[in-house]
């Protein structure tokens, strides 16, 4: 191969040409995105959108979807969107009782920036299932949390804010569990007492080692309920009221479940089903008229076996928060209670 130029030079020229040809492709045109490539919707911006932007979007990258979007909801349920005037007060309370305590506990907003779900999807009505129960919230894939019944929220009503607190901490616990799993030791504390139709069970959940009826649905719900009720109630109510409950009830040896009605459980007042016709004859609206019928053979319940099981669950929850997220759960509990008091002041 005889050429005027040496192979070496040709190689250089070729390399230079390649370099030129590669960079000559560079285009400076800005990438123009389609106006809207998912569904194409025409929607306005309001003062509420700006307020939510300041409250949650900018600091935590949490989008609040309050406008109706059927695709976010299971079509088997009839649901309606929230009232616009309810959204900002509810989200403000929500931030106070959910994000603020974690910030106070971890010392910065980094934890919530990292672990908070990226979307809160709001429904105005509760989600009512065919069996008559309601779904208050759902957490999906660590990414979004669905909160229903926003129309009934009230930022100054402690009970309503506590409902919201319980709901968001329950769902957020699912998110935390979805990011870092808890030990399966938790699932074997009360393995045989998880039931699908938990709402039909007449048994006091504490007797079996559960913090609530819903906790009996399955272990993941149990975990979320244990966390969220402990945060909602605070240490005082949990230790001194929930765990120490001991309302007397008719001796099961004499009165099997279903053989008596409850008049006032806190006062230990029960009467026999078979006495009902006789009671109706003499009942004149006063307690005295029916008190002779109250069952006298009452026993104090012994929940110690259940309490012991619940204590085991509590220990796993505390250890999980420490090892997975380096959070002192009891201190978080105190912070949540402080925030709740402040929010409803």
């Amino acid at each position: 191969m005889k050429t005027i130029l040496k192979i070496r030079n040709i190689k250089l020229i070729l390399l230079a040409s390649i370099a030129i040809s590669i960079f000559s492709c560079k285009k400076n045109d800005k990438l123009v995105l389609q106006d809207n490539y998912l569904g194409g919707e025409v929607s306005g911006k309001t003062a509420l959108d700006s307020a939510l932007n300041v409250l949650l979007v900018k600091p935590y990258n949490i989008e609040v979807k309050y406008k109706w979007d059927q695709s976010q909801f299971d079509k088997q349920y009839t649901i309606v969107p929230p009232r616009v005037d309810k959204v900002l007060p509810a989200m403000t309370s929500l931030k106070q009782v959910w994000i603020d305590p974690y910030n106070a506990e971890t010392g910065s907003d980094l934890f919530m920036k990292t672990y908070s779900p990226k979307q809160l999807i709001l429904a105005g009505s509760p989600i009512l299932t065919k069996d008559g129960n309601g779904i208050n919230g759902l957490a999906e894939g660590g990414l979004d949390i669905l909160l229903s019944d926003i129309n009934s929220t009230d930022p100054k009503d402690k009970a309503k804010v506590s409902d919201l607190l319980h709901l968001i901490h329950h769902e957020f616990t699912h998110i935390l569990n979805q990011k870092k799993a808890y030990t399966t030791d938790f699932n074997v504390i009360t393995p045989s007492d998880y039931i699908a139709d938990w709402y039909n069970s007449p048994v006091n959940p504490l007797a079996l080692g559960f913090i609530s009826g819903y906790a009996r649905k399955e272990p993941v719900e149990d975990f979320a309920e244990t966390v969220s009720w402990m945060l909602t109630w605070g240490k005082d109510y949990y230790e001194n009221t929930y765990l120490k409950q001991s309302t007397p009830f008719p001796d099961p040896a004499l009165y099997p479940a279903g053989s008596y009605y409850t008049y006032d459980p806190n006062a230990g007042q029960y009467y026999k089903v078979s006495d009902l016709p006789a009671i109706l004859k003499v009942y004149n609206g006063t307690l005295a008229s029916i008190s002779p019928f109250f069952i006298k053979e009452l026993v104090k319940p012994d929940y110690s076996a259940g309490v012991a099981k619940l204590r085991k669950k509590e220990a796993i929850v505390v250890a999980y928060f420490k090892s997975a997220y380096n959070i002192d759960f009891y201190s978080l509990q105190t912070n949540v209670q402080k925030s709740l008091a402040n929010a409803t002041k």
Binding site: G39, P82, N151
Partner: peptide, 29 residues
């Protein structure tokens, strides 16, 4: 006053996307 939007779903749809008196008829409560 409430909000509405138009959206291309299967067919072009008018959505009353926040609660209004119309939502009363759909409210599951």
């Amino acid at each position: 006053i409430s909000s509405y939007q138009l959206k291309s779903l299967q067919r072009t749809s008018l959505i009353f996307d926040t609660y209004s008196s119309l939502s009363i008829l759909s409210d599951p409560q």
